[in-house]
Write a protein that binds this DNA or RNA. Structure first.
Ligand SMILES: [Mn+2]
Ligand SMILES: [Mn+2]
Ligand SMILES: [Zn+2]
Ligand SMILES: [Zn+2]
Lengths: 126, 126
DNA sequence: GTTGTTATTGCATCAAAGTTGCATTAATTT
DNA sequence: AAATTAATGCAACTTTGATGCAATAACAAC
């Protein structure tokens, strides 16, 4: 699993993620690429890019899945323990380059965490 | 909005939440109460209980909605800024009575946060 | 207790976000 | 250039939840 062939569709998505540090929801990507590729293709490429360690995904408070470029991940190791920020006004969502302290909980093993901050972004504040 | 009439179905759900400190997913509740009430009714009562401030909801990493009893909330004020823990083995999910420090982010206003810890619960560890 | 009002429920139907099976197409290998 | 097989498109499906509407049942007024 993972990307094996560099198709036109794969290139399109990779380029999109490399453009900015923004995160994109699956829904948004399907709509934005509607004319270039099928929705099934979008989701399958996202899955492969994630397997490869090129992007990571997370779930927002509405249950939607978001995707963003990884920083220092590989197919063998996904190191994406950072919070995300979602603007409840414009929807723009980004990765936050912050360390979050994972609280240790007695008698439980914590493997991963999803931390989503919801608020108003810089643009929407002014 | 909010509960107005104490129906049998409402009583059933309230009792369920008062039994333990566990969280329940909508899917689980619909299935568990399948013989007592319609799934539409389950979701509508959950909505009303949340409006009332009796329960709160959050979204897990699979996009499912979970519900749990509130501690000190009212219809006017929902104070549920606490993390949740989900066992990836048995699925059991609970509220954690921990303070989480909401990081302040320059130029952004943070209103709320969802913090989900994923790991293995006490029972599944042993 | 009976009657009237309207919140609540059940049922059918719909909607959105993905997922799956399968035939076709197009990268990549030989 | 031909063969191989990963990737794609399309249609159909699944799951979670929401909605419209007629029937029912709380609750208030008498
Ligand atoms: Mn991220
Ligand atoms: Mn909780
Ligand atoms: Zn914004
Ligand atoms: Zn467990």
């Amino acid at each position: 699993m993972g990307i094996i062939r560099k198709t036109k569709s794969v290139e399109t998505l990779i380029q999109l993620f490399n453009q900015g540090e923004e995160a994109y929801s699956g829904v948004y990507l399907v709509d934005r690429l509607r004319k270039k590729m099928n929705k099934t293709t979008v989701y399958r490429i996202l899955e492969r890019l994630e397997d490869e360690g090129m992007i990571h995904s997370f779930t927002d408070n509405d249950g939607l899945t978001w995707y963003a470029k990884c920083n220092g991940c590989s197919s063998s190791h996904h190191a994406d323990l950072h919070p995300h920020f979602k603007c409840r006004n414009c929807g723009k969502t980004v990765c936050l380059n912050l360390d979050i302290a994972i609280p240790s909980i007695p008698n439980r093993k914590v493997d991963s965490a999803e931390f989503l901050l919801i608020g108003v972004c810089e643009k929407c504040l002014t």
